[in-house]
């Protein structure tokens, strides 16, 4: 199947490994990810007010391109992009006034015909976790991995419709398909502090500390994420947490889920080639 692929800024720069492992694994699974041409930054945040409409121009432009290219699904990886695209698409489907403004400006007639999906959803629904498990050649046997959902994939509850907001399971099911030991811990959906790490670092650090403590107490050896900002926060504030927790562990590695997927499918060697 062919998907329009929207990488977003971070995957092209600080999170290159996220993109590399995504494309490697998609290829291995026979999924065709065709990058949207001349895409622009999605704006990183969906506007939380009634006045800003034009931040939606960029995501709609990409969606309209996906449609023109004949794709029915646009896939994103970064949880931030996913949140913006998913909500924008919903608005384009349901809000005639905004739709009119945006389409007027872009000279398009986009009404949400394309579905915005996350790579995890493709793995779950289009590939199928049972089928995925069969394709795994290096099962992550014995690896204690704690999924960290963060906020942007799931919330707001009534707009994202990604998984159960309070008790999501998609990450766990994914990890089980790879053969890993899933670590259950209650902080998997608590906010990591998001952009507060730019302006209020001590707040973000405390939020991160709680998540790490909870995961650590429940035996996690690694965290897996789908968001570059979560990864940054969870890594950046490990030092303080380790000191506070008096933990001898050298820290908990934070991985993109695609890194684990690449490992399990044994396509990671291709990196250097």
């Amino acid at each position: 199947m062919r998907y329009s692929y929207y990488p977003g800024c971070t995957l092209k720069t600080k999170a290159k490994v996220f993109e590399d492992t995504t494309l490697q694994t998609a290829r291995a699974l026979g999924l065709e990810f065709a990058e949207v041409e001349e895409w622009q930054c999605c704006g990183a945040l969906y506007p939380l007010n009634t006045e800003e409409v034009f931040p939606l121009l960029s995501p709609v432009r990409s969606l309209a391109q996906a449609r023109a290219a004949g794709c029915t699904k646009l896939v994103t990886l970064c949880a931030g992009c996913y949140n913006v695209f998913r909500r924008t698409n919903r608005t384009m489907r349901s809000d005639a006034e905004v739709r009119g403004k945006i389409n007027g400006y872009l000279e398009e007639d986009y009404r949400g015909q394309v579905d915005v999906v996350h790579y995890l959803e493709i793995l779950k629904n289009d590939v199928g976790f049972a089928e995925l498990a069969e394709k795994v050649s290096r099962r992550l046997e014995g690896r204690k991995i704690a999924p960290y959902y963060g906020c942007l994939l799931l919330k707001p509850r009534n707009e994202m419709d990604f998984d159960d907001v309070e008790n999501p399971t998609i990450f766990e099911d994914f990890l089980r398909a790879l053969g890993a030991n899933v670590v259950e811990y209650p902080y998997r959906t608590e906010c990591c502090g998001s952009y507060l790490s730019m302006a209020n670092e001590e707040v973000a650090a405390t939020a991160v500390g709680r998540i790490l403590t909870s995961a650590f107490k429940n035996g996690a050896e690694a965290l897996v994420v789908a968001c570059p900002l979560c990864k940054y926060n969870l890594e950046e504030y490990q030092k303080g947490f380790r000191e506070a927790a008096g933990s001898p562990a050298a820290g908990i590695p934070v991985l993109y889920f695609t890194e684990l997927l690449a490992e399990a499918l044994d396509v990671r060697e291709q990196d250097g080639q």
Partner: peptide, 22 residues
């Protein structure tokens, strides 16, 4: 006002979000 460490390491997504908010 951003520490160099942050400017250097933080993902674009975080920087853009923060400036859009603040």
């Amino acid at each position: 006002n951003l520490p160099a460490r942050v400017l250097e390491n933080a993902p674009q997504q975080g920087l853009v979000s923060a400036f859009r908010k603040y």
